Simulated assay, not measured.
Amino acid sequence: MSEAFPRHVLCVLSSGLALSEMERIASGFGGFVLDREYSEAEPDPRMPEAFEASMAAASFDEADWAAVESHGTVGYLLSMPMMRELAFDTSRRLLAVTAALLRSGATAVKNESSGITHGRDRWLSLADRAAGAKEEDLADALVTAWVKRPIYDGQVLYSCGMHLLGAPEVQIEIGAEPPTKDELPELVEHLDTLAIYLLTDPRAAEIEDGAGFRMTEDAPRWLLRTGPCDRYDEDDLFFNPYGYARLTHAR
């Protein structure tokens, strides 16, 4: 296993929230600092394209797009490099930070470490869900918040962001034909079921390559294939030191 430690890099846009105030709000949750080298109190013309590439279309409304277009400040908040056992709680706290920033004048937020964003209302809804949630419900909120999925590489649907929760990326082998709109929801549900399993079931720590896996007791049997992260270099923010767990059809 790689010795790399994942970290959150959160891009925060605003039109009136000062960088010093961003840092003050984040520091109140413990372990988050402002990257002073890259944060700037001026607009960045690359932001509309960057947010669009981060799945903004899934939850942005007109006000969210306007906020990105009209921003005047770009702040980058960093978590500490996260040991595996601390990643889940760090991600929980950072979701609370995100909500606090949005309620204090920030206008748009995206995660550079998984390439995902949400509209303001979705961020706040996820933070509210996580604040009162336990176990599987909390895991589901954090996966939705921080994990970009599904991504298709021509053979496999996969995630990016499970490293921020201390777990392998989840994948499902589907072959060379891209999924149809009708097929996609069920495949994403499979990815999410596997993700929640990896985060909440003690047996997940003992997964072996080739193990059987069922979504429910009476569901078809899959095989779990495991392996190291081979999509990104170790110094890439997307790199997952815990590798991947891939669902393949049992034949």
Rank of each mutant, 00 (worst) to 15 (best):
M1P: 13
A4F: 06
F5K: 15
P6N: 14
R7K: 15
H8I: 14
L10K: 10
L10E: 02
C11R: 02
L13S: 12
S14Q: 13
S15K: 15
A18C: 02
A18F: 10
A18K: 14
S20V: 13
I25W: 02
I25Y: 01
S27H: 02
G30F: 02
G30Y: 06
V33M: 04
V33Q: 09
D35Q: 08
A41F: 04
A41Y: 04
P45R: 07
M47H: 07
E49S: 12
F51M: 05
F51L: 01
A56D: 00
A58Y: 05
A58W: 03
S59R: 00
F60T: 01
A63W: 02
D64A: 00
A66K: 01
A66R: 01
S70T: 14
G72H: 06
V74A: 03
V74N: 01
G75A: 09
Y76P: 05
Y76C: 02
L77W: 07
L78G: 12
M80Y: 13
M82R: 13
M82L: 15
R84D: 03
F88S: 04
T90A: 12
L94A: 02
A96L: 08
A96T: 11
T98D: 01
L101H: 13
L101E: 07
L102D: 06
R103L: 12
G105Y: 05
T107S: 11
A108S: 08
A108P: 05
K110R: 15
K110N: 11
S114I: 15
G115S: 12
T117H: 01
H118Q: 01
R120T: 06
D121I: 03
R122Q: 03
R122D: 00
W123S: 00
D128Y: 01
D128Q: 01
G132A: 01
G132H: 10
E135G: 09
A139K: 06
D140K: 14
L142T: 11
R149F: 08
I151H: 08
Y152M: 06
G154F: 06
V156M: 02
V156K: 05
V156C: 04
V156Q: 05
S159L: 00
S159T: 12
H163N: 07
L164R: 00
E169T: 11
E169Q: 09
Q171E: 13
I172W: 08
E173G: 03
G175S: 08
A176G: 14
P179H: 11
L184V: 14
P185F: 00
E186V: 15
V188E: 13
H190D: 11
H190S: 06
T193R: 14
I196F: 02
L198D: 11
D201S: 11
R203H: 11
A204N: 10
A204M: 12
A205Y: 10
E208K: 08
E208S: 13
E208Q: 14
E208I: 05
D209Y: 09
G210W: 11
M215D: 14
M215E: 15
E217F: 09
E217C: 09
E217Y: 13
A219L: 11
W222P: 01
P228H: 07
P228M: 04
R231T: 09
R231A: 07
D235F: 09
D235Q: 09
D235G: 06
D236G: 10
L237I: 10
P241W: 03
G243F: 00
Y244H: 08
Y244P: 01
R246W: 05
L247G: 05
T248P: 09
R251P: 13
